[in-house]
Computed example of a mutant assay.
Amino acid sequence: MYRRILIPIDGSEAAENAIPHALDLAETYDAALYTVSVVDTSEREDEDKREAMFEEYERQSREMVEDVIRRAEERDVRTTAGSIAEGKPHRAILRYAVDQDIDLIVMGTYGQRGILRPLRRSVTEKVVRRATVPVVTVRLEEREEE
């Protein structure tokens, strides 16, 4: 059913919480696991500042990607080299999914509530609303949010 599963990672607790679910799905469907990290360059920064930000995030992203690949290899899940994209995170994730012919996206979410929720649309929510493939969301439990 699924041949290519994408797990966007950003170092957050929500993303970390979603990784085991992505691994389980990849193992169940004998699918390849793809990872992507996005450097948010949507803000208008000068070129030097943008480049420095990208270099620092790239280093951190490589470490996160290597960790996911290691965890996948321990479970005999096929992986691809992780990628780093830049731009608005939800757009970069959706573009990556199309470019790599992804069948399923697995993302963590914090399950925001309250009056400010409409003002803080999450990257996950934007992906869910715009994706052309199924998106599995993995919510942090209450005790993990505090």
Rank of each mutant, 00 (worst) to 15 (best):
V135Q: 03
E142Y: 07
A22M: 02
V136I: 01
E58P: 04
D101C: 12
L140N: 04
I93V: 15
D40N: 14
S37W: 01
L116Y: 12
L94M: 09
A52T: 09
L23N: 00
R143F: 13
R129H: 10
E13P: 09
A31Q: 00
E66S: 11
L25R: 01
E27A: 07
S37L: 02
K88W: 03
S61V: 03
I93S: 10
V136L: 00
G108Q: 05
I93K: 08
A85V: 08
E146A: 12
V65A: 05
P134E: 04
T80V: 13
I84K: 01
R113G: 03
R62M: 13
E141A: 10
E86S: 13
E145N: 06
E73T: 14
R117L: 11
Y29A: 01
E27D: 09
V133S: 06
A72N: 05
R120A: 15
T137M: 11
I19T: 09
P118F: 09
L6S: 05
L104H: 05
Y57V: 15
E16Q: 14
G111P: 10
A26D: 00
I19A: 08
H90E: 11
K88P: 03
I9R: 07
I102A: 02
K88F: 06
S12C: 07
D10L: 02
R70D: 15
M107F: 06
E13S: 13
T79D: 09
E125C: 04
D48L: 12
A81T: 14
R62D: 15
D30P: 01
A131L: 14
S42T: 06
Y2C: 00
Q112K: 15
V68E: 12
G111T: 12
A81P: 05
A15K: 01
I102F: 01
T41C: 03
E13M: 09
D103K: 02
I69C: 14
P89V: 03
I105A: 05
Y96E: 15
L119D: 05
D46R: 13
V123K: 00
T79R: 09
S61Q: 04
P20L: 08
E16I: 04
M107G: 04
A85L: 08
Y110Q: 06
D30I: 01
K126L: 11
D101R: 14
I93D: 07
H90K: 11
D99E: 11
S61N: 07
L23G: 00
S122Q: 14
V136A: 00
E58C: 11
E142F: 06
H21R: 14
L116R: 15
H90T: 06
S83N: 08
R50Q: 08
R71D: 13
I5Q: 05
R62Y: 13
S61M: 04
E47Y: 07
A92E: 07
V38F: 06
L116P: 11
G82K: 03
Y34T: 11
V128L: 12
R70S: 15
Q60L: 15
A52Y: 11
V38P: 03
D46H: 14
R62W: 12
D99P: 03
S37E: 03
Y2W: 01
A52M: 13
Y2A: 00
R120E: 14
R75N: 08
N17I: 05
D103H: 02
R129C: 07
T80N: 12
T132C: 12
R91T: 09
E74H: 09
